[in-house]
Design a protein around this nucleic acid. Structure first.
Lengths: 125, 125
DNA sequence: TCCTGTCACTTGCTTTTTGCAAGTCACATA
DNA sequence: TATGTGACTTGCAAAAAGCAAGTGACAGGA
């Protein structure tokens, strides 16, 4: 809805700052995690254990789409229904998530990696 | 100030969710970045280009300290002054930041990695 | 002694973002 | 006709962020 060029470098040219401008909140990377785990539909994201508020979910999906991290496709036409998929840009976030999993494994006792029910090439554990 | 055990697993046992509970906002990892780059003092963090509000900075340093990611030490006693340092737990965040830098390098055109003026073993580029 | 400055914050207040519950709309099924 | 499902939207209270200004301990200089 906005031209994407003007949104960039809101804060600085630092790569970390730019990643945080896109993903620096409590929910966005959890939606990405769900996509990596194989979830594709709004209702599936909404059902995840963390309990994302539905308005926040709708907002995050919109932002991820505008950022080119996911694509929204209709998978049914009669009752119009959508599904979301990671783009290559989105799949390239896997190493970030993996680094987080590694850190938590080492420093947050008791965490449990979720089983995945669809596969991307990288392992995420 | 609080017992740290009760704060954990606010949302789920997912490692990603737990990392986001600690670092899931626009500022915390920027402070960690500055620490990795060699900054140690409150005033130095406050001067970074992104312009973190001072109240937010004070809050983030407190949280990072409570999480065991940084330690606060007095480096002067006559005018009482403090400096902050990453613990091992904090230094272990470097791979997460590196993964972010790699993603931004590939997907956000024009980002520039900051030069570092003090060194940890990992490269961060 | 008085004045100015630095460092490390804190306070007050406005704006923005979250979180929660409920509502909507297009269809499907019984 | 009545109920249900999927994908959202709306309204509103509560929490967090952003901004400017203030504070307190001390240092150095006139």
């Amino acid at each position: 809805m906005n031209q994407s060029a003007t949104i960039e470098f809101e804060r600085s040219h630092c790569p970390v700052a730019n990643v945080l401008d896109l993903f620096g909140d409590k929910w966005t990377l959890l939606v990405v995690r769900d996509l990596i785990l194989g979830k594709t539909r709004y209702g599936e994201f909404a059902q995840s254990v963390e309990g994302i508020p539905t308005n926040v979910l709708a907002d995050r999906l919109k932002r991820l789409e505008m950022a080119g991290v996911v694509v929204k496709k209709a998978y049914s036409g009669k009752p119009l229904r959508y599904q979301y998929e990671l783009t290559e840009k989105g799949k390239d976030l896997v190493p970030i998530l993996e680094a987080m999993v590694a850190w938590a494994d080492k420093h947050v006792p008791g965490v449990k990696v979720f089983p995945r029910y669809s596969g991307y090439n990288s392992s995420l554990e």
